[in-house]
Amino acid sequence: MKTMMKTLFAAIACVLFVAASPLKNGYEVGDAVADFKLKNVTGKMVSLSDYASSKGVIVIFDCNTCPYSKAYNDRIIELNKKYASQGFPVVAIQPNDPAISPGDSFDEMVKLAEKKKYDFPYLFDETQSVARAFGATNTPHVFLLKNNGGKFSVAYIGAIDDAPRDAAGVNKKYVEEAINALLNAQDVPSNKTKAIGCTIKWKNA
């Protein structure tokens, strides 16, 4: 009886603890990032650990169909052109469930990457586990990672810039400012921003 009571108390304590701790919804700035491995449009698997020798990685949750993704498509290509050579390549990840958004199927991803001549990986997060681990909410959603001797941590989360309508109207280039700060060993000026965007099309539970 005594053991039973003990077990019961332990169980109650457990429930209370779980209920009291806030739900962890992905990474915050400063958090360590777990490795992931996803299929690229080339058919090859790509891991975060493949980038162990780069200064960081610009992870962008993106897709084919969202009008914001379309509006930012050329700016994402430009980011890679500008920063891959400086040690910050782009890795794009498509998390939408093609059952809900057929235009985001793997085949359609391959077509877009070919059409736009992507010179960076465009990975399919088929189980959506990577988007969940990161806490990505919309597309395009940037997680700028910095490499601390083989271990990646989050340096910036948010939008690419402050003007989705057109690149000409941009005042604040959030991602570029963040990378430039990291390259100069300075603090990232604004390390978290928000933007309007298409919600990620999660699989029906």
Binding site: N138, D162, A163, K172, S190, T193, C198
Partner: peptide, 16 residues
């Protein structure tokens, strides 16, 4: 500049 006003409407909103 959505980042400047999203939190003013609702702090819990990502913007999606």
């Amino acid at each position: 500049d959505p980042n400047s006003w999203i939190n003013q409407i609702e702090k819990g909103w990502s913007g999606a």
